[in-house]
Design a protein around this nucleic acid. Structure first.
Lengths: 339, 339
DNA sequence: GAAAAAATATGAAATGTTTCAGAAAAGATG
DNA sequence: CATCTTTTCTGAAACATTTCATATTTTTTC
C-alpha cells in the first residue's frame, strides 16, 4: 500500500503532475482549468480512489444566468410563458431565475444591482419598461421584451398582434349575430390593452356598429371584483348588451358571473369572449371562448433570441409576432352543453 | 502609519494576541469562540480599520441573494407565498429570485451549481426535497422549508397542520348534515396530500361513518381534467355522494363542474369543499368553500427565518405551524345566492 | 500576415480554514 | 472534596483556496 492516510489536494496534485492550486480549481472553479488538465487531475483522483463530493462538482464552464422579470407573479398569464423560457434556458445549460419588479424609476437601481450581483448574462422583460431604463439596462446586458413591450425602445420583442386578434374575436361575435357588444378592459397604460381596444373598435366600426360610451368599460386595474361590479351595473341599466368581449379571461369570468347573477343565460342571452386562454378559461363554468396566444412559444422564443444575442452580441435580432387562435368554448357556443 | 498594506487574518491575530485560527473562527464559526476572545479580536479589527471582507460570511458588500425554489410554477397556490417571501426579502434589502426545479437526484447538480454561481445566501424550498439532498445543500447555505416539507430532515419549516385542517373541514360537512362524503386527492407522495387524507379519514371514523373505497379518489396528478373525469364516473354509479372534499381548490372546481353536468345542484344536492383558498375559489361559480391557509404569512415568515439564520447561523431556529380557517362560500352554504 | 491586445491557463506564494491534540473549565460521582 | 468525565476553547500544523505574476494561446487590428 502506498498511502493509506487521508487523500489531500497535494497528493492528487503530485499524482497528476500539477500544482495543488490547479487541483483546488478543478474542485471549485472548474471553468478556469483547461479540459485536458481536468482530465489529468480526475485520473489522478480516480487512481487514489477519491470521488468528488456531489455538491462540490461545478459546471465545466460558468453557466450563464438569465433573469426573467415579471411585474407581478400574481398573474396566471405568466406561468406558461415562464415554462417556455425555462425549457429553452435549461436545454442550453443556463439558469433561468425569475425576478419580480415593476421596473419603474423607483426600482431601477435595485434591478441594476441585481444584474451585477448575479453577473447575469441577459434579461427578458414581461413588462413594459420605459425606454430610457430599457436602454440603460441594454448597455449592461442583452435585453429581450416578451408579450408586453415598448415599441419606442427599438429593442427586440416577441409578442402577438393584439389589435388583429381582438378584431378577429369581435368579428366572430358579430358573425354570431351579436351587434350589441360591450368591451371590458384594464388600464390603457398597458400596450396590449390599448391594442386590444383598438382592434375591438376597428371591427365594430368596420361593421357600422356603434355602442354607448358606458359599454366601453375601463377598469383602474385588472381585477375580478371590480369587473364583476362594473358588469353588474351595466346589466341593471335599460339596454343590456348581447355580448361581452373582455381583454382578459379573468374579466370574462367576472362578466359571466355577473350575467348569471341577473339570470341571463350564457351564451343564449349573453355571449362572452375572453383573451389569453389561461387555464381558468377551460375550467370555468361555462368554459370561456377566448383568444389563445402561444404563451409557451413566446417564452421559449424570447429565451432563444436572448441566448443568440448573448452568444453573438452583434447579430441583428428581429422581433417576432406570433399568430393567435380563437378557441371556441361554451360561453359563445350554443350547441355545446353549456349550463 | 504602522502597516499600510492589506489587512490579513494573521495581522488581526497578532493585534489581538491570538492565533490566526481563532480569528478565522470569529469570522466563520463564532460559536466556537469564547465571548471575551471574540471581543479581543473585534477590538483588534477595529484598531486596524478592518472593513468587512469581500465574500465572507460577515455580510458581503453586496446585497444577499435568496433563492426560492418551486417544483412547478404552473400552480396557482405558490403565487401568494412568493409575494410574502418577496415582501420580507425586499424589506431587508435582499434580492429574492425564483427558481423552478423538482430538486430530485437528477436536478441536484444543477441546483448546487446555481447556488454557487449566484453566491446565494440561503434557500427556501416550497417542495419536498429528499433528506440527503437537503442536508448537502444545508452544508452550503442555510435552508428553510415552506408549506411542503420533509420532517425527517430535521431542518426548520413553516407550514400548517394539514391533518387538523382537513379534520375540521370534514367535521363541518358532517355537521351540515352530510354523511356520504367522497374525498378527491392527488398523489400521496406529497406530504400535504397524505396528511389531508389522514385528517379526512380520522374525522369520518370519529363520526362512525364509512364510505366505499371508490369514494377515496386518488389521482395520479393534481389535474383538472382527470378530476373531472373521475368525479363524472362516480356520479354515474348507483350511489352518489352528498358532498365532495377535495385536497385542493382546483379539484373542487372540477367536482362542481361534474356535478353541474349531471344536473346536481351545488350546494343543495352536493356540497363541495376545497383546500388552499386560491383566487379561483372566490371567482368560481358557485364560489368554493375552502380551507384557507395563510400563504402570504407562510412565505413571509420563511424568509424572515432564513434571514435570521443567515445573520446568525448558530441560532436555534424553531419551525412554525400556522392556523387555518374554513372560508364558507356558496358551494356549501344553502342560504347564499348560489346558482 | 505580422504585431498588438485580450483572453486563458498555471504555479508559487500568500492567505484563509479546518483538523487534531491537548489545556482549561465545568459537571458528575463517590 | 478529590477524582473522574465531559465540555469548551485554543494554537500549531495540516490543508485548502485565492492572489498575483507570468506564460501561453487566441483574437483583433492594421
Amino acid at each position: 500500500m502506498s498511502s493509506n492516510s487521508k487523500i489531500t489536494v497535494s497528493k492528487i496534485a503530485a499524482g497528476a503532475g500539477v500544482s495543488p492550486a490547479t487541483v483546488s480549481r478543478v474542485l471549485n472553479h472548474r471553468h478556469l482549468v483547461k479540459p485536458e488538465t481536468i482530465e489529468q487531475v480526475e485520473n489522478a483522483m480516480k487512481a487514489l480512489g477519491y470521488s468528488i463530493p456531489e455538491h462540490k462538482i461545478t459546471a465545466p464552464r460558468e453557466e450563464p444566468v438569465i433573469i426573467l422579470n415579471i411585474p407581478n407573479i400574481n398573474n396566471l398569464f405568466y406561468t406558461e410563458v415562464i415554462q417556455g423560457a425555462t425549457m429553452s434556458a435549461n436545454s442550453h445549460g443556463c439558469h433561468l431565475l425569475i425576478n419580480q419588479s415593476p421596473l419603474d424609476h423607483g426600482s431601477f437601481h435595485g434591478f441594476c444591482s441585481l444584474i451585477r450581483r448575479v453577473n447575469a448574462a441577459g434579461v427578458i422583460f414581461l413588462n413594459q419598461v420605459p425606454s430610457e431604463l430599457l436602454h440603460q439596462i441594454n448597455q449592461m446586458v442583452p435585453v429581450i421584451q416578451c408579450c408586453e413591450y415598448n415599441q419606442d425602445a427599438d429593442l427586440p420583442y416577441v409578442s402577438i398582434d393584439d389589435c388583429r386578434a381582438a378584431m378577429k374575436a369581435t368579428e366572430y361575435l358579430i358573425a354570431s349575430g351579436k351587434n350589441k357588444i360591450a368591451f371590458i378592459n384594464g388600464p390603457l397604460s398597458f400596450k396590449y390593452a390599448m391594442e386590444r381596444q383598438r382592434g375591438f373598435l376597428t371591427a365594430m366600426s368596420n361593421a357600422d356598429l356603434s355602442i354607448p360610451k358606458s359599454w366601453l368599460i375601463q377598469l383602474p386595474e385588472v381585477n375580478y371584483e371590480m369587473a364583476y361590479a362594473a358588469v353588474c351595473q351595466l346589466l341593471t341599466s335599460e339596454v343590456v348588451p348581447g355580448a361581452f368581449f373582455a381583454a382578459s379571461d379573468m374579466l370574462a369570468a367576472a362578466a359571466i358571473r355577473a350575467a348569471k347573477r341577473y339570470h341571463y343565460h350564457v351564451p343564449r342571452d349573453i355571449m362572452v369572449v375572453g383573451f389569453d386562454n389561461i387555464d381558468l378559461s377551460a375550467m370555468y363554468t361555462p368554459s370561456i371562448t377566448t383568444v389563445s396566444q402561444p404563451k409557451f412559444q413566446e417564452g421559449f422564443s424570447s429565451c432563444e433570441m436572448l441566448l443568440e444575442k448573448i452568444a453573438n452580441p452583434d447579430s441583428a435580432t428581429r422581433s417576432i409576432l406570433f399568430d393567435t387562435e380563437l378557441v371556441i368554448r361554451e360561453s359563445t357556443s350554443t350547441n355545446s352543453g353549456a349550463i
